[in-house]
Each structure stands twice: as C-alpha cells, then as structure tokens.
C-alpha cells in the first residue's frame, strides 16, 4: 500500500513526528544531534586545554562552569537529551538496516566502504561506554571519589590536581587514548556524513567536508590525547 504524503499532511501529526517516522527525517536527527555533540566535544577540549595555562586558569574555569546551577543543569540536561536522542535514533536506524538486509553475501568484501564507515555503530557503542566511565571518573566520582574532593588554596575544586592524579594511572590514560582513537574514527566519518545527511554537501564541496571532518577529528584526537600524555610524560605535574 502506498503511503500518501497528502493524507499525512491532512492529519494533525506534528512535524517532529513526521520527521521521526521517515528515514531521511531520522538522518536529520542523527546529523543535528551529532553536530551538537561535535560542538560539545570542541568546547570541552578548549576548556580542558586550559590545563596548560596552569592550575589557576583551569580551576577558575571549573568554578565558572559550576557558578550557576540552573545553567549547569540545563546544559547537562540538554546534553544528556542529545546523547539519548543520538543513541535512540542510532538504535532505530540500525534495527531497520539489519531488517532491510537480513542475508549477508557469502563471498567477497564490502564494496568501497571504509573501516570508519562500517564500524560507526561499534565505535559509537564503545564511546558510550567511555562516556559513562569518564563521567564516573571526573564528574560523579564512582571511580575514585577523592578526586572530586581536592580543593585549591582559594577553596575551589582543584580540577588541575584531579586531572593530574586521574591521568597518572597509565591504564586509565591508555583507555582514554584508545577511546579518543575511536572518537577519531567515529567523527572522521560522522562529521562529513552529517553534512551529507543535511543535504549540505555537493559534488564540489564533497572533498572539502571530507577533509574538514578528518582534520577536525584529528585535531580533537591530538588535543585530547595530549593531556594524559603530557601528564604521563611529566610535562604537566
């Protein structure tokens, strides 16, 4: 039976619902939430890089972030919602995709797709596990509650010391670095893909967005990894 757009228009279903029910609409959700998370990751890194400016700068930044609980919690809530939506959509899309292609080919290797493309779901899942650990590590404190209790001489939460101590454990740092590798993988396809999904890519800008995605992912990777590495190598102490 053919689904008619007119009948859908006539009904009072909202735009969101219509988008949610269509394959392309879901891709928009994926892209927009992905873009939001990409933005967050950039801001997050910019904040964290202040560790190179010394304890005062990053502790002040930490205090600023927590200065207004209403803003903080709204931001946290929005972020959480974006993550949830990104994951929920990913689950739905993946389910639909598996259903559309129940039988795999017996021979040969996949046509023309890259490792990053084929593993986007797996990399996403591992990144999710990482995020949970990361929140536990530096925000909630179930890894080491003490980390959240450090205070500097001004009575602020000593973010600097928390990070230095947190990353002094080579196992944790290596886990972080591996996770950042997966994020690199995830973003190198995800970021260029989101422009495609939003219909912003064209033949001419194809290469540009591809390079932009890979470049940004690499910068993020290097920036994020530099912190645990600097700590392990004793550059930051």
């Amino acid at each position: 039976m053919a689904a008619s757009a007119e009948s859908m228009q006539a009904s009072s279903r909202g735009l969101i619902l219509r988008l949610w029910r269509s394959s392309i609409g879901k891709k928009y959700v994926m892209a927009v939430t992905g873009l939001g998370l990409f933005g967050f990751v950039i801001i997050h890194l910019a904040g964290n890089l202040q560790i190179y400016l010394g304890p005062n700068a990053i502790n002040a930044y930490g205090k600023l972030l927590k200065s207004n609980p209403a803003v903080l919690w709204s931001a946290r809530f929005v972020l959480l919602a974006i993550v949830a939506l990104h994951i929920l959509t990913a689950i739905q899309l993946t389910k639909a995709n598996r259903k559309a292609r129940p039988v795999k080919y017996a021979a040969g290797k996949p046509v023309a797709s890259t490792f990053a493309q084929r593993t986007i779901v797996i990399s996403g899942l591992i990144i999710l596990a990482f995020i949970i650990f990361h929140l536990g590590h530096f925000t909630i404190g179930f890894v080491d509650p003490q980390l959240l209790e450090y205070e500097d001489i001004l009575g602020r939460h000593d973010v600097y010391r928390m990070m230095v101590t947190g990353f002094s454990n080579p196992i944790i740092s290596i886990f972080y670095i591996i996770s950042m590798g997966l994020l690199l993988l995830h973003l190198s396809h995800g970021v260029s893909s989101l422009f495609q999904s939003l219909g912003l890519r064209s033949k001419k800008t194809f290469g540009f967005f591809d390079k932009l995605a890979k470049g940004a992912a690499l910068v993020l990777f290097l920036g994020n990894c530099s912190i645990p590495l600097s700590i392990l190598l004793g550059i930051i102490k």
Binding site: K26, Q117, S197
Partner: peptide, 27 residues
C-alpha cells in the same frame, strides 16, 4: 510532493537507511 511521496514509499517498502558509505556509488 514528489520527494515526500517517493521517500514515504521507499520507507514503506522496507529499504534501509543511508549511512553515507558510498558503496552504492561504487557499484
């Protein structure tokens, strides 16, 4: 109308979603 109707029918038929891998273009 065209894009709304065709995409709705495409979904109805049970085709999967594009994950922008480019395999289609290569094939």
């Amino acid at each position: 109308h065209r894009v709304l109707n065709m995409v709705a029918q495409m979904d109805e038929e049970g085709f999967g979603n594009c994950t922008n891998t480019g395999s289609c273009e290569a094939a």
